[in-house]
Computed example of a mutant assay.
Amino acid sequence: MSSRELVVLGTAGAVPTRHRNHNGYLLRWDGQGFLFDPGEGTQRQMAHAGVSATDVHWLCVTHFHGDHCLGVPGVVQRIARDKVRHPVQAVFPASGESYWRNLRHAAAFADTDVITEHPVTGDHAAIGPLTARRLSHPVESYGYRLQEPAGRRILPDRLAALGIRGPEVGELQRGGSVRGVTLAQCSVPRPGQSAAFIMDTRLCDAVFELAAGTDLLIIESTFLSGEAAFAKEYGHLTAHQAGLVAAEARTRHLVLTHFSERYGFADEPAFLDEVRQSYDGPVTLARDLMTVPVPKRRRHLTVP
């Protein structure tokens, strides 16, 4: 199976800094690349990270504030210039379709026909393997969740005990039974892996729904709690709130990002301290060009 990992291309909030580029996140997932919120400079960050246009299969925009979408023209034109042949699915809020059109056709270039558009409407939408939920921000914004379907893990010792071997194993997996032996007798449930991407928002039900049970949660933490009132006014989360979400959701790995320009690397311990008030799992404070693996799949150790 191909790797599942997050490649961080940018981690700044509204204003980039010397050390943080505007947003950009490529989630590699079984040979598919999900590029979320390409901000200004994303194409160059991709080059630094060793990411090419052919790695992009999904282009997902949460909302149309500049730090989340001004990299779209460069990415689209690079897809065209490099003659990417596979389909690229573009997902974005339908209310911002005029902004999408302007970004999609921001300059003269030899266009491509591989991009298929999926404008999102309503409080909840499903597009292929993605689920989108409307968040709480001054402009319409959506969070995204990537969910692998649940399956079953075959137990070789149980197969051997029941005399199932060779081609019969495949028949059992496809049909659910062979020679009176059922798949349930030879396997245990295997939960599907999941990742959620939650950018600019206040706390709301959709945040918790997107995050619930995730293996990897990438979430904004624009401010520390001292700016909680300011964060709420402008539709953002604090590090403390991100920790609360991760704890309630029982996420397995929390990634904080989208840091206000008022904070530097020296402030990272304060972000971690706020998260630790409620969440005790693995935490990554994202930095540009970092790679974060999706946690290994949960395994059942006992047979029901």
Rank of each mutant, 00 (worst) to 15 (best):
I218V: 15
G213K: 07
Q185G: 02
P87M: 05
T112L: 09
S98N: 09
P119T: 02
R250V: 07
N102S: 15
I219T: 15
E117Q: 09
Q43C: 07
D37L: 04
G151C: 08
S278I: 07
I115E: 01
G96Q: 03
S278G: 13
E168L: 08
V181Y: 05
R190P: 01
L155C: 07
Y279S: 06
G281L: 12
M290H: 11
V283G: 14
M46L: 03
V56L: 05
F109L: 12
S141R: 01
P129V: 10
G163A: 13
Q185F: 01
D273K: 13
R276W: 07
T284V: 15
G13D: 08
R262T: 15
S136T: 11
E168P: 00
D123V: 10
V283N: 14
Q193V: 02
L6N: 09
D205Q: 14
F109D: 10
P167Q: 11
A206I: 09
L301H: 13
E148G: 13
S194R: 09
P269I: 15
L289C: 13
T284N: 08
A132C: 14
R202D: 11
T291F: 02
E5S: 04
G176M: 12
Q89L: 09
R78V: 03
C60W: 00
T257Y: 05
D215W: 09
L26W: 05
L172F: 08
L210E: 02
V72D: 15
V88C: 07
A94T: 05
R250W: 04
A108F: 10
R28S: 05
A106T: 06
G180S: 12
S221E: 09
Q77T: 15
A196W: 04
A266H: 13
L103Q: 02
M1E: 07
F36N: 08
A110L: 05
Q43A: 15
D200P: 00
Y263G: 06
R165C: 03
A47M: 04
L130W: 07
H57T: 12
Y25Q: 10
L224Y: 13
V56I: 13
E40Y: 06
P129N: 14
A80C: 04
V7Q: 08
F36S: 09
H105L: 14
R262S: 11
R44W: 00
D205P: 07
L244T: 14
L27P: 02
A266W: 08
G243H: 12
L183C: 00
A160E: 12
A126P: 06
S177H: 14
L237P: 06
F271N: 06
F34W: 08
A229H: 12
A196Q: 04
Q185V: 13
S177A: 11
E117T: 14
S2P: 04
G71E: 11
T62F: 01
W58S: 02
G41H: 01
G71T: 04
H300K: 01
D67N: 13
P191S: 07
P38M: 04
A206K: 10
L254G: 12
L244K: 15
A266M: 02
H137S: 12
R165F: 05
G281Q: 13
P282R: 11
